[in-house]
Computed example of a mutant assay.
Amino acid sequence: MAEDPAAPDARPVQIPARIHAVGPGWRGLLERLHEQIRAVFPGYRLLDLKEKLGGLRVYVEGPPGSGDRLRSLIALAEVEAEHTCEFCGASGRIRTRDDWPGG
């Protein structure tokens, strides 16, 4: 029988459940972010995780009063992702169509 996601004792969706939504190069930084958030707010809930305009976007919900701490942890991971290839994990930068002639 499937669990009812609205049930009060249902486990919240967290980063590992959606890590496949972005490239494998960001897996390590997302695993670190999950551990950092879980250490402070074990029951946090992932609202969305995606790549947008070449950057990582993570949206989570924590207990009342957790917003500033969560935002600071996420901001660090998002900045790290801007300098990490989403596909291979090597150092990189955000690229645009204008990087190559006719690109």
Results as ranks from 00 to 15, higher is better:
residue 30 L to E: 07
residue 31 E to Y: 07
residue 19 I to L: 13
residue 75 A to T: 08
residue 43 G to Q: 15
residue 19 I to S: 10
residue 74 I to Y: 01
residue 30 L to Q: 09
residue 58 V to A: 01
residue 28 G to D: 15
residue 20 H to E: 09
residue 7 A to I: 06
residue 103 G to C: 02
residue 46 L to G: 00
residue 14 Q to E: 04
residue 57 R to F: 08
residue 6 A to G: 07
residue 13 V to C: 02
residue 91 S to A: 11
residue 4 D to T: 03
residue 31 E to I: 13
residue 58 V to D: 00
residue 57 R to C: 11
residue 2 A to T: 07
residue 58 V to W: 00
residue 43 G to W: 03
residue 48 D to C: 07
residue 26 W to R: 09
residue 74 I to L: 03
residue 2 A to V: 08
residue 103 G to F: 06
residue 101 P to R: 08
residue 35 E to D: 15
residue 79 V to S: 12
residue 36 Q to D: 15
residue 1 M to P: 13
residue 99 D to C: 08
residue 21 A to R: 04
residue 84 T to G: 01
residue 86 E to Q: 14
residue 19 I to R: 15
residue 28 G to Q: 13
residue 38 R to A: 12
residue 32 R to W: 04
residue 79 V to N: 10
residue 8 P to Y: 02
residue 17 A to T: 10
residue 49 L to D: 00
residue 47 L to S: 06
residue 60 V to G: 00
residue 1 M to C: 10
residue 73 L to A: 10
residue 14 Q to V: 03
residue 55 G to Q: 10
residue 30 L to D: 03
residue 95 R to F: 10
residue 36 Q to C: 03
residue 78 E to Y: 05
residue 11 R to S: 12
residue 72 S to H: 02
residue 56 L to Q: 11
residue 37 I to T: 11
residue 94 I to Q: 15
residue 32 R to C: 11
residue 64 P to M: 14
residue 23 G to E: 06
residue 81 A to I: 03
residue 27 R to Y: 05
residue 6 A to Y: 11
residue 74 I to S: 01
residue 77 A to L: 03
residue 48 D to A: 12
residue 75 A to E: 12
residue 76 L to D: 07
residue 86 E to H: 08
residue 19 I to N: 04
residue 48 D to S: 15
residue 87 F to I: 14
residue 51 E to F: 00
residue 23 G to V: 00
residue 101 P to C: 09
residue 64 P to C: 08
residue 75 A to N: 13
residue 68 D to H: 06
residue 100 W to A: 04
residue 16 P to C: 09
